[in-house]
Write a protein that binds this DNA or RNA. Structure first.
Lengths: 220, 220
DNA sequence: GCGAACCTACCGGGCGGTCGGTAGACTACT
DNA sequence: AGTAGTCTACCGACCGCCCGGTAGGTTCGC
């Protein structure tokens, strides 16, 4: 049933808006409200009202608040798998693969950040088993990036970078986009994606030890 | 009264543990629990129990849940001002200043991330006026970084980087540390700080256009 | 007339917050 | 020395509200 729910959500976030599948609209609205107010601050009534139903009416479509959250996160993770990880896996050159990862992930966020952002911010709202599931998939993603960085290092393009720290840092940079990017802002989505991708690659590539960035600040 | 509260918290987060000032312990515990479970998922009872009081007893010390949150965030912002922004302001060379910002901010997070992390994750729990206050101070911080990046660009050390996007990206990289760094992990705090600082500087400095990181990925 | 789609009404419970009270230390006056 | 008053630091009990969730209909297209 989760698979079915995710399918519904996938339809919903696509271009074609709901015409028959009410469930899709519900998931999409819930994702938007969770994203804006946070999971715990969002009531079932909020979601019901947003889709023009009463609370009881909403329960015709969903099993509960936590299942709703898990379904949204599962969908977001599916999106990441399909639109970032799988395409990147088919890129053999490590640098090109890293660029693919960053650019595609960033683009996903500039296009619709709701589900992706909930995915990282509302983990503690899940049941332990569900949380373990999601965290495992996230961990796989970070490992995938770390492996790519390790491959870059083996090519000699990167010196003295810890792949795990590098992977986490790049992920942080990408995820943070959802906090500051506005579709109606000074830069459009493609420009932001390009800019962030450039920074990410630059952060990782070796520049030949011309920087003395070590430990310049001491407390006090 | 907020100033007094913040003073109490400042004492609390220092080395010397509570010996008389109960308020300090309360703020510190609250920050830790808010950090772990999130603001909305934390009840006043949780905090009271953590400091060995009943809910009513706790209200002898605090004005309300939202004031508690605002006080914690105000303290975190003060920490940022005093330990990151002010020291960095005294550094004239833009690159050295940027290194100071990143290293000091990162160090703050590896040392005790509770208040700093609440500061960015629980904004929507605040009253509108309080939120505006905090957001304004955060915006000032980002502008400070962006100005530093602009100065670097004027020196010719950076080509074609948007200072605002750069500032946000670096902040994202730094803040994300609190999500993955564990004090008992493989790397100790200083190593992580050094690694992240190196990445941040590298992300921003010009490497002479040897990267073709543009728009390598298309959907579909 | 039957099932899908939805409603009104309700439940138990936990929430943030308040109230009246009080143990005990400390002060003040006689 | 005794005792009355006062203040700090707390507690048990309670309030009204809203929460997630449910029971039991009702409407409506087929």
């Amino acid at each position: 049933m989760t698979a079915l729910d995710n399918a519904a959500l996938r339809v919903a976030t696509g271009a074609a808006d709901g015409e028959q599948d009410r469930r899709a609209e519900i998931y999409r609205s819930a994702a938007r409200i969770f994203h804006r107010k946070g999971y715990h601050a969002t009531s079932i009534n909020d979601i019901a009202a947003a889709v023009g139903l009463t609370k009881a009416g909403l329960y015709y479509y969903i099993k509960g608040k936590q299942d709703l959250l898990f379904a949204i996160m599962g969908f977001a993770m599916d999106q990441l798998d399909e639109q970032v990880i799988e395409p990147a896996r088919r890129v053999e050159d490590p640098q090109a693969r890293l660029e693919t990862i960053v650019a595609r992930h960033a683009r996903l966020i500039t296009q619709d950040s709701s589900a992706l952002t909930i995915l990282v911010n509302e983990l503690e709202g899940l049941l332990p088993d569900d949380r373990a599931d999601i965290i495992g998939r996230q961990r796989d993603y970070v490992d995938f990036i770390a492996d790519t960085l390790a491959a870059l290092r083996d090519e000699g393009k990167v010196l003295g970078l810890d792949p795990t720290v590098g992977a986490f840092s790049l992920v942080g940079m990408i995820l943070w986009i959802s906090r500051w990017y506005r579709a109606d802002g000074r830069l459009d989505g493609d420009e932001v994606v390009a800019e962030v991708t450039r920074m990410a690659i630059s952060a990782v590539l070796n520049r030949g030890e011309d920087s003395n960035a070590g430990n310049p600040a001491r407390t006090g």
